Amino acid sequence: MNWDTIEGNWKEYRGKAKEKWGKLTDDRLDVIAGRRDQLLGEIQKSYGVSKDEAEKQVTEFEEAKRDVPS
């Protein structure tokens, strides 16, 4: 699975994103709308982490979703 799949099915994946990054509000998740770069920026801002750390977290999220049937 690639990020396009997550973006295309964001309504399904946003709940999992909310579980992982609880500081992200529903409104912010709606604005992100599955866009990877937007998610990275929100994680950096909300959690005060580096770009590399945000990238690592999003990559882990993406890899974990490979195991979820679509």
Rank of each mutant, 00 (worst) to 15 (best):
E62A: 05
G22A: 07
A64C: 06
E62W: 13
S50L: 07
E42K: 06
K20N: 02
F61D: 08
W3L: 12
T59Q: 10
Q44V: 11
V58Y: 00
N2W: 01
S70M: 04
N9M: 05
A64N: 15
L39Y: 00
L29G: 03
T59R: 15
K45W: 02
R35G: 05
V49C: 11
L40C: 10
Q57Y: 14
D27Q: 13
N9K: 10
T5P: 02
K56V: 09
I32C: 04
A54K: 06
K51R: 12
P69T: 07
A64G: 11
I32E: 06
D4H: 08
R35T: 12
G34Y: 10
R28T: 14
D37T: 07
V58R: 01
G8E: 04
D52M: 04
P69G: 03
E60H: 06
D26T: 11
K45P: 02
K11F: 08
K18H: 10
E62T: 11
T5R: 06
G8T: 10
W21T: 07
D4G: 13
V31C: 00
D67N: 14
V31T: 09
R28N: 07
W10N: 03
M1V: 15
A17S: 12
W10P: 10
Q38T: 06
I43L: 05
D37E: 09
K20Q: 09
N2Q: 05
K16S: 10
R36T: 02
L40W: 03
K16G: 09
E62R: 14
N2S: 09
K45E: 15
E19V: 08
K20G: 03
